[in-house]
Design a protein around this nucleic acid. Structure first.
Lengths: 157, 157
DNA sequence: TGATATTGATCAGTATGCTGATCATCAGTA
DNA sequence: TACTGATGATCAGCATACTGATCAATATCA
């Protein structure tokens, strides 16, 4: 009888569950209130100022309907801004605020600490190997979810 | 600058996202409407007939408040039953129905196929290694989430 | 140009997952 | 036995994620 622990899907859920808990604990202890999802979105907005929501969703592989709520909360917290695009009036351009930049900078140690803690059972070589295998499996399965990863397209067509 | 792809937490989310999508696709194509979470719960009820919800939650590491809804849906679909326990009137004893057993049996090929698909980018040796590393990281982090894994306790105290 | 298809964003609805609270019941102890 | 703390279950509220729909705006092509 196949056990749950032989199912990669179950192990994936479990590891993710721990990863989220560790992230929230570390970031919370540092005095910030930001989820892993919000952090990834904010960091990606900072790295790609002015990108629209679809591009943001593609870069971090979020569903397009999820990104709306995530950006809502970033805006509500004053960490990012949503502006109407002049190039395409359907689109919203996203930029990080000063407050958002400050938060990102101050939160970095907690985020790095969280990444270390979730791998604390592994040697550093094993941690590297785990990440390599995850990246490889993800690359092969990228198109299988509704929210595949997409590179940013040049925005000045 | 650290990329999202260097973050185990991000990779975990991404892999899990693909795993869920693959599971739903395979199971759906086989004609069933069952989520990964519902599947794991149902299989665990079958393997431990009469267990209470807290024990079930512990065996598969679900939060206790999540299990209520999951069991609700299994019951609503006629796959499991919730009975008052005579040993402890606070507790609900869970049992699988005949329909539930039938469903589990018929769904197995789709579930196994899903597990294979989510690892399709890896050699079988790499797949094994990924599972080993996940299990190891999970074991070390078990207590860090609100819903750690717990063995079943003897129920006849 | 005008019809059609596509695209960016949002919404309603559903299913996980969590925090923190409440309620009933049980267990252990004074 | 009465009190106290622990436990099983549920609830309200919030944040991801998804399906499928809708709407406005853009792109494409006959």
């Amino acid at each position: 009888m196949k056990d749950n622990n032989d199912m990669p899907g179950h192990l994936a859920r479990r590891f993710q569950q721990i990863a989220v808990a560790v992230f929230l604990a570390e970031v919370g202890e540092a005095g910030f209130d930001l989820t892993p999802v919000q952090y990834a979105a904010l960091a990606t907005i900072k790295a790609n100022p002015g990108l629209d929501q679809i591009t943001l969703a593609g870069l971090i592989a979020y569903d397009r309907t999820t990104i709306t709520g995530v950006v809502d909360r970033l805006v509500q917290k004053g960490l990012a801004e949503r502006r109407a695009s002049r190039r395409d009036r359907r689109a919203r351009e996203l930029v990080i605020t000063d407050e958002g930049s400050r938060t990102l900078r101050k939160i970095t140690p907690a985020v790095e600490s969280a990444q270390a803690i979730m791998l604390r059972g592994l040697s550093s070589k094993e941690g590297e190997e785990l990440m390599r295998l995850l990246r490889k499996a993800i690359a092969a399965g990228n198109e299988l979810s509704r929210a595949p990863m997409r590179d940013a397209q040049a925005q000045d067509r």
